[in-house]
């Protein structure tokens, strides 16, 4: 299978503090991968480097066969991104918001794609709402709809279901799995919900202190750490990084 994303020896430090320290990552077409790790492990910084938003200090990224940063625009035309912490564009109705992003992704007439994507995530009733009228969970849901409008070959999701009710999170998960199966979309997702990761992803990559400490199928990674499940493996890695003791120190966020 061809790689849709290939990162080699990514390094990033902020004011001398290492955030990402030599990360190698390859995601193949249709593969569903979780990027896991405690707060401050370097997940978001890694994702933003993979998308060309942050420039790495060292290393190389090839996205959709395009080398970044030169091929950023061409590569991102085939990538979708959503994050639980991102707001909707203000002063727009949901349909206007989705139309704008559909056009940014090259859809001259995005209407049918909007209807299909809203249906996929069971959110057609939100189409005419103003962004400011939505709950945080609904905004997150519409963010995911936005990221899937153009049928991306790679979907990158940063904490996609963090603010969703369990039933909505279930719809999102089902919608994502359906899309990945039907379109062969690859998935790269960060999450702190290990149950969700086990249900959604066939491979997990654990980061700790900016380094990959495990990479493989969930069961194999769990076995590597000698734990009962992914949750325990996560806590083990968090303990290794010290974040279970000192709490959520956001070393991956520049000051």
């Amino acid at each position: 299978m061809a790689a849709v994303l290939q990162a080699e020896r990514l390094v990033k430090a902020f004011r001398g503090t290492p955030a990402v320290d030599g990360v190698d990552l390859r995601v193949h077409a249709g593969e569903r991968v979780a990027l896991l790790g405690p707060n401050g492990a370097g997940k978001t910084t890694t994702l933003l480097m993979l998308l060309g938003v942050i420039t790495p200090d060292a290393g190389a990224v090839e996205l959709m066969g395009q080398h970044l940063p030169a091929g950023r625009s061409a590569a991102l035309a085939q990538v979708g991104f959503a994050a639980g912490y991102l707001p909707l564009t203000e002063r727009l109705r949901v349909r206007e918001f989705l139309t704008m992003y559909g056009q940014l992704y090259g859809l001259a007439h995005p209407g049918p794609a909007i209807a299909e994507a809203l249906e996929r995530f069971r959110a057609p009733d939100l189409a005419e709402a103003m962004g400011t009228e939505l709950s945080s969970g609904q905004r997150t849901l519409i963010g995911i709809v936005k990221a899937t409008l153009h049928r991306p070959r790679l979907l990158v999701l940063d904490e996609p279901t963090a603010s969703l009710d369990p039933d909505v999170a279930l719809h999102v998960r089902m919608g994502l799995l359906k899309m990945c199966d039907e379109l062969g979309t690859a998935l790269l997702v960060t999450s702190h919900n290990m149950l969700e990761v086990e249900r959604l992803c066939e491979r997990v990559v654990f980061l700790s202190r900016g380094r990959v400490v495990a990479d493989g199928p969930p069961a194999s990674v769990v076995a590597t750490f000698g734990r009962a499940d992914l949750e325990e493996a996560f806590l083990h890695v968090a303990g290794l990084s010290g974040s279970a003791v000192v709490g959520a120190q956001e070393t991956d966020r520049p000051a």
Partner: peptide, 18 residues
């Protein structure tokens, strides 16, 4: 500035928009 006030920059930067 509207993009910064509405925290919309990241949304735009992950699209093909140049």
């Amino acid at each position: 500035l509207e993009e910064t006030w509405s925290r919309n920059l990241l949304n735009l930067m992950v699209t093909p928009l140049r």
